[in-house]
């Protein structure tokens, strides 16, 4: 299937919109499974976009730009991966294999965008000295440009010039590599899950990991069913910790104010 120019424009806009919406209203939240699905709709094949996005999603579950850290940009990866999975006719696994390196390389542009915004910060500071409120507003909203363009320009270029390269790859790609990448597509979610388990206090909650695994592996309970049992366990835990903290308050009186300053959490 040949990509149409209006599709390229729409997908370029999607990349711009995706990152800015993530920073603003946060409904699509820059998540590959959501953005990939939209890219699939634009390409007229939602399911492929959904599968590419969902697999990339598993690589970054629960991972965000905490404290301003840059993370692989699988949102942009999901757009590019979806497009080439559909245009090449090679299917979702091929798209995933392309999207992973794209997502990893895009980190550099995320850093560039975050750096570029220092420029607008300085302009805002200058505008404050002059009490130029229009310039303050203008330079605040201009901050969207480094964010949006750092995603939109690479997507535009990859969609314009990428298809020849992708054709070349498909023509010369040996079977062992193609099949190997397809196997990798199945295994990669394990990496995302392991990264997530490193984030979460897994060792303290290992029994719940086992409960969830048992329900899915042995009883074949679907995910929503597992979530319902998890929710039930969560409510029990919440009620118990609520009872405990009431006791603590009774003992300590009301000393909440001080511990606000030296909170136990670090950003």
């Amino acid at each position: 299937m040949q990509i149409q120019f209006w599709q390229i424009l729409l997908l370029t806009f999607l990349a711009f919109f995706g990152i800015c919406e993530n920073l603003m209203t946060n409904i699509c939240a820059g998540q590959p499974v959501i953005i990939g699905t939209i890219a699939g709709i634009i390409m007229g094949d939602m399911t492929t976009g959904l599968v590419v996005g969902a697999t990339l999603q598993l690589l970054m579950l629960g991972i965000g730009t905490y404290g301003g850290a840059s993370i692989p940009d699988y949102m942009t990866g999901s757009i590019v991966g979806t497009v080439f999975a559909i245009t090449s006719g090679q299917g979702a696994e091929f798209g995933i294999a392309l999207a992973v390196p794209v997502g990893l390389l895009m980190v550099q542009l995320d850093i560039l965008a975050r750096f570029s915004n220092v420029f607008f910060q300085n302009r805002i500071e200058k505008a404050v000295d002059k009490l130029d409120f229009k310039a303050i507003a203008r330079n605040t909203w201009m901050g969207a440009l480094p964010w949006g363009l750092s995603r939109a320009i690479p997507v535009f270029l990859m969609l314009i010039f990428g298809s020849d390269l992708v054709d070349l790859i498909i023509k010369y790609l040996p079977d062992w590599l193609m099949g190997g990448l397809s196997v990798a597509g199945g295994l990669l979610p394990a990496v995302g899950i392991a990264i997530l388990l490193r984030y979460l206090p897994t060792k303290d909650y290992i029994s719940y990991l086992m409960i969830g695994f048992f329900l899915a592996a042995y009883l074949a309970v679907p995910m929503v069913g597992v979530a319902i049992i998890g929710l039930a366990l969560a409510i029990i835990s919440f009620k118990q910790s609520g009872a405990q903290s009431q006791n603590v308050v009774a003992v300590n009186g009301n000393s909440g104010q001080e511990d606000l300053v030296d909170g136990e959490f670090e950003d």
């Binding site: 579950l61 979460l200 897994t202 719940y208 990991l209 969830g212 899915a216 597992v226 979530a227």
Partner: peptide, 9 residues
């Protein structure tokens, strides 16, 4: 969350 991740594996 951890229960769900267990099922995800």
């Amino acid at each position: 969350g951890i229960t769900v991740v267990g099922a995800l594996i």
